[in-house]
Nucleic acid binder design. Structure first.
Lengths: 234, 234
DNA sequence: TTGTCTATTCTTGTATACAAGACTGGTGTT
DNA sequence: AACACCAGTCTTGTATACAAGAATAGACAA
């Protein structure tokens, strides 16, 4: 069930075509299109003409169409029969739906992680947190976000549930997209960091119930900030 | 984000080609292949040769290949680059991973449903439950399972969260497959029914916390029975 | 007998060709 | 002026053709 190494979302590919062995153009195309959507190069609502994508990616329609099915399964595009594929919209109410689910997923991950985490891994997360606090103090947002993402990812990995990991992966692109579209508010930033330190304490003491609760709240708390940013834009 | 009406898993198709408007052979193919896998006609580990599937389904390779991508995203098949697609295995440990996640997902759905359910919908679920009790008394397993599935589906629908619904849908095929491969133990059957009545009570009184808890336990309880059946088979 | 190498066959990956369904602009009518 | 209608164009859906990588079987050597 969990041998999806090759076909899983962004196993590796993300724009480079260099050291790639031939014969997986559709996976490569999916990777490129995915990052184009996440980066906003292909904005929500954009109509994707197959031929146009072929020219941009330098491949024929067959791999492009297969890549689009993959992206559709990930929720990044909508397939309208006999009509163009469009980049899926991201409205404020959708965002709430997304964050409720995503927070719950990470909550489960947190609970499982508490059961399975080793001392070494607690140390690892602790170091990442320290690094993050450092970037916050220096107001360097980009590396902060990167470490933040890494902490969440490590937590899900430590949970050691491949099904959970797959579901989590399928949701991450949309969460990341929301974060990218609505850059984090400064007031929220400090609050989020504080929540992270509380979450680490719960993790280190292996209090799964508490950590799950904190995790769900963490996402729910950041939701209104993202929503307000989104409403201003479109 | 939630306009996935047409491309979502088994929106309708499940083997019939009758009243179908042309131009969606790949969706039709996906539906047929999906039910072939769920029914066990295509057992775990089976190598799927594209040409062979073409003959069976009466279409060309293009829609078959696109259907296989969809099924891969649903976790029913594994894509091995330059090698045949195979029906994914279903091992006992995988099953535990699946059920932990699925139980949690339905738990969230249950919690949301408690907040949003109307009196009319409570009545509807109540009638379904009564029907199910009836089938249990008559030991008619197939229709029982069908109603059971419907209750779960209605609960998730009432939760009214499209993201949650999509995630749920992506997991259901595997859960259903596990149920199909390991036909429910009679002892467990009665226990499961009892749990359902308790869950209905919680739903009717809109006790989300309790219902979520019961739902998670419901899946965890049925897990060992399915696992033992699975170990006997392969 | 066993192991390895190679040639053949099979299967998948990609490109292209053709058909059918949507979109667009203009024309005519009311 | 507004609306319905129709042809031409564009876009997607499907089939087929061709190329390249993998499996297989047989020959040969150790």
């Amino acid at each position: 069930m969990d041998k999806t190494a090759e076909n899983g979302p962004w196993a590796d590919e993300s724009g480079d075509t260099s050291g790639r062995k031939k014969g997986q153009l559709h996976a490569e195309a999916a990777g490129k299109l995915r990052s184009m959507i996440l980066s906003g190069e292909l904005p929500p609502g954009e109509r994707l003409r197959e031929m146009q994508l072929c020219e941009q990616l330098g491949v024929s329609r067959t791999p492009v169409r297969e890549a689009l099915r993959t992206l559709a399964a990930e929720g990044l595009v909508d397939l309208l029969p006999n009509r163009s594929v469009v980049v899926s919209e991201l409205h404020a109410p959708d965002l709430e739906h997304l964050f409720v689910v995503f927070g719950a997923i990470e909550g489960i991950a947190a609970e499982l992680a508490c059961q399975k985490i080793t001392e070494a891994e607690i140390g690892e997360i602790g170091r990442l947190l320290a690094e993050m606090i450092d970037y916050h103090a220096r107001k360097e947002r980009a590396p902060y976000m990167q470490i933040n993402q890494k902490i969440h990812q490590r937590t899900v990995e430590i949970a050691a549930n491949p099904v959970l990991y797959t579901v989590w992966q399928s949701l991450v692109p949309r969460v990341e997209r929301a974060r990218a579209l609505a850059n984090l508010d400064t007031g929220r930033w400090t609050g989020a960091l504080f929540e992270h330190t509380k979450m680490f304490t719960a993790l280190a003491s292996r209090d799964g119930q508490l950590l799950a609760q904190l995790t769900r709240e963490h996402f729910l708390n950041s939701l209104p900030f993202l929503q307000s940013r989104l409403e201003n834009d479109d």
